[in-house]
């Protein structure tokens, strides 16, 4: 690493290349020129690397990976439940119930479902008591008070046509855009 006439080194400039120039750099023509040189040269290579990844057919490769993954089924918890329509004992997977909850949320103008989990909380068969975890982001013009009732309704409407239930507890977690929890509320419903 070379030393510039001002006393700073190339390394000093490189260490802060992603940061705005400090006061010294702003006033120093050598540092300024060095920063520009390093940015130009690195930018040139970075641009080339972005534009040309050798031996790569992204779609074909992704498809190959997806083909492999298809061989590994996700673990799905199965539940013994009572069919809401016929009253018969049936088995449903968590994913079937989750899909129904997602479908209910898809209509929502005020909240977006980021993640959900559903579990039976009783030991009897068929299961009648359920706990649902709902992680949602809410629209900027909405409020917690508005969506908490909506969320309970969505979950209730989603599972009621599929399974008979007696008690429903919804753990509502409101998240920001990055999935960080802002607030948690427990909602309860009975049938």
């Amino acid at each position: 690493m070379k030393t510039l006439p001002c006393g700073r080194t190339t390394e000093d400039v490189l260490l802060n290349l992603d940061e705005p120039a400090d006061l010294h750099e702003l006033q120093c023509r050598w540092c300024h020129a060095e920063r520009q040189r390093l940015k130009d040269q690195n930018g040139f290579i970075t641009q080339l690397l972005h534009s040309s990844t050798p031996e790569h057919q992204p779609e074909a490769f992704s498809q190959r990976i997806l083909g492999k993954i298809a061989e590994y089924s996700p673990f799905q918890r199965m539940w013994d439940v009572q069919d809401a329509g016929t009253g018969l004992a049936i088995r449903v997977s968590s994913l079937e119930l989750i899909k129904a909850i997602r479908a209910a949320f898809s209509e929502s103008p005020t909240s977006q479902l980021n993640y959900t989990e559903i579990k039976a909380t009783d030991t009897q068969i068929p299961h009648l008591n359920w706990r649902v975890q709902c992680h949602v982001s809410m629209a900027g013009d909405s409020s917690v008070q508005v969506i908490e009732q909506q969320v309970l309704d969505y979950v209730r409407c989603a599972i009621s046509p599929l399974i008979s239930w007696r008690e429903l507890v919804v753990n509502l977690v409101i998240e920001d855009l990055h999935g960080e929890a802002i607030e948690s509320i427990t909602l309860r419903g009975e049938n």
């Binding site: 990844t53 790569h56 992204p58 779609e59 490769f61 992704s62 990976i65 997806l66 993954i69 298809a70 996700p74 673990f75 799905q76 968590s94 994913l95 989750i98 997602r102 977006q112 479902l113 980021n114 993640y115 959900t116 989990e117 992680h135 982001s137 998240e175 855009l177 990055h178 999935g179």
Partner: peptide, 29 residues
């Protein structure tokens, strides 16, 4: 986008292979 990523990861964790496929396509390169 981070929001899209969060949603796809959530759906993947729920066991949705389509959402995971989207993650694979987007992040593999």
């Amino acid at each position: 986008e981070p929001t899209r990523l969060t949603v796809l990861v959530g759906r993947s964790m729920e066991g949705d292979p389509e959402a995971f496929g989207e993650l694979v396509t987007a992040l593999t390169p």
